[in-house]
Design a protein around this nucleic acid. Structure first.
Lengths: 239, 239
DNA sequence: TTTACTAATATGTAGTACATAACTACTAAT
DNA sequence: ATTAGTAGTTATGTACTACATATTAGTAAA
C-alpha cells in the first residue's frame, strides 16, 4: 500500500495532469491575441460582448468570464453602453493579488526573500545616478528619528521609512512599488526565522553609516555598505 | 472650450472617477478574504458554486466570474464533480500575462529595463553562494560557442543562454523565471534605442571575462565586471 | 451655446436548463 | 486481493433568456 502511495506521488511529480483548457481559457487567449494583432491603443473601443460571442461561437457567458479576467488585470475597462476600452495594464496590480505570505509556499517565500536582497544590492547604481542633496537630507531626518526607538513596531516602521526612501530615490516607480510589495513577505520570512533561530541580528553598518557613504562615497562603497548592512540575512542563506 | 477641456483633464487628475465596484469585484474580494480567514491549505476543497452564490446572495454567474479570476491567478483549481481546491498560486504566471512590450506604456518599459539592470547587478552574491564547478564548466561551453557568431539572431540567442545560465546558478527559481520574463521587454527597449541612437554598444568586459572572474575572483570582482559588461546600458540611462 | 428631456442600448445580474466529466459504490472476474 | 467493468450521482462548463440600469446620443427648449 505504501508503495502504491509512493508511486502515486512520484507520478504526480513526473507527469502533471494536463489541464483541459476550458472555453473560457481559450477565449481569454484569443482575446489577448486579438488585442495584440489589432494593435489597439489605450482608449480604443472594443466590440461588444455579444458580437465577440457570436464571432467566437460561444455564449456571452464565456466571453464575460474571459473579459472579467482581463478587466482584473487592468487590461480593459468597461463602461456601460460605451463598450470596453483598452487600458494600460497595471503590471504590478496582478502581482499584488497573489503576493500574500499566507498562501505562498515555503519555497516561493524563500525565493522572494532572496529576490529582495538582490534588489537591495542592485540599488546602488540607480541611486547614484539620480540622488539629489534634498534626498540625502531627507534620509538624515529619517535616521535622526530612529534613535531610542529600537522596539519592535518602531523598528519595522523605520526600516520601511529608510529603505522606502532609498527606493524612491531611484526614480523608478515600478521598482519602488515592487520593493514595497515584497516587504510583507520579507517581514514574514524574517519573523519566522527569528522564531526558529532566536533574535534578529543587525548588520554592523547602520542606516546612519549608509547615509554617510551616500554623502562621501561612491556607488561601490554604498554597495559594500549595503552588503554589510544586510549581512545577517545573507548569513542566514548559507545555513 | 479649451478651458473646459483643461478643467476636465485637471479634474480627472484631482478626483479620479470612483470605480463602481461590480458584484463580481466584491465577490472576488470576499472570496479572497474567505480563503485567508479559513486558512485553507492547498488541496482543501471549497464549497460548491451554488452554495457560494446562495451564501453571498448573488447569482452563480457572478460567483463564476470571480472564481474564473482566481483560477486564472492559479489560486484555485477546479475539477468537475470534486469541486474546487485551493492551490499554490503561481505568482509569476499573472505577471507573464501582462508583461507584453506591445501593450505597456513607455514609462513602464523604461522602468522594467532599469529593473533588469538592477537584478543583474544583484546577481553576484547569490551566485557566489551557490555556484558549482559544473556550472562554470557549462558557462565555458556556452562562451566557446559564441565565437564567430556576432550576427543579430545568434547574438541574442547567446545573450539569453549565458545570462540564463547565470540566473539558474542562483538556485532561485522565482528569480530565474522573473528575469527570463523581463527579457522580451529588455530586448524591445534595446531595439528601440538602437533604432534611435544607432548601433548597440558592447561593454568592454565580455562573457569570457566574466567566466574568468567566476573562476578566480570574488563576488565584488564579479559585480564590477558585470557593471562594466552592462556599461553601455547604464550610460544610456544618463542621457 | 447651454440645458433639459427622451429614446436607445450595452453591460451587469439573475435564472433555467442540460451535457459531461469525474466520483462513488457496487459487482464480476482474474 | 487486486483489477475490471457497470451504473448512478453530481458539480462544473456552457448556453440561452430576461431585464434593470447607467450612459450615450439625439432632440427640443431656453
Amino acid at each position: 500500500m505504501s508503495l502504491a502511495v509512493y508511486i502515486m506521488s512520484d507520478l504526480k511529480n513526473d507527469i502533471r495532469p494536463l489541464e483541459a483548457s476550458t472555453m473560457t481559457d481559450q477565449v481569454e487567449s484569443r482575446l489577448r491575441e486579438y488585442l495584440k494583432r489589432k494593435s489597439f491603443v489605450p482608449g480604443d473601443a472594443l466590440p461588444k460582448e455579444q458580437e465577440l460571442a457570436d464571432a467566437l461561437g460561444v455564449s456571452r457567458n464565456v466571453v464575460r468570464e474571459a473579459l472579467s479576467r482581463l478587466r482584473m488585470l487592468g487590461m480593459i475597462d468597461t463602461r456601460k453602453k460605451r463598450g470596453m476600452v483598452l487600458t494600460q495594464p497595471d503590471i504590478l496590480g496582478s502581482l499584488e493579488r497573489v503576493l500574500d505570505p499566507l498562501i505562498l509556499g515555503k519555497n516561493t517565500l524563500k525565493d522572494i526573500f532572496e529576490l529582495r536582497l538582490v534588489l537591495e544590492m542592485g540599488l546602488a547604481d540607480l541611486i547614484y545616478l539620480r540622488k539629489t542633496p534634498e534626498d540625502v537630507t531627507e534620509l538624515e531626518t529619517i535616521v535622526a528619528q530612529e534613535v531610542n526607538k529600537q522596539q519592535k513596531p518602531f523598528r519595522v516602521e523605520h526600516e520601511i521609512a529608510f529603505h522606502g526612501k532609498l527606493y524612491q530615490m531611484t526614480g523608478n516607480d515600478t521598482y519602488m512599488r515592487f520593493q514595497k510589495m515584497l516587504l510583507p513577505v520579507f517581514e514574514y520570512v524574517l519573523d519566522y526565522e527569528i522564531q526558529v533561530n532566536g533574535q534578529a541580528d543587525v548588520g554592523k553598518v547602520t542606516h546612519q553609516d549608509l547615509v554617510e557613504i551616500l554623502k562621501n562615497g561612491d556607488a561601490e562603497d554604498f554597495r559594500r555598505g549595503m552588503k554589510a548592512h544586510l549581512k545577517p540575512h545573507f548569513d542566514r542563506l548559507k545555513a
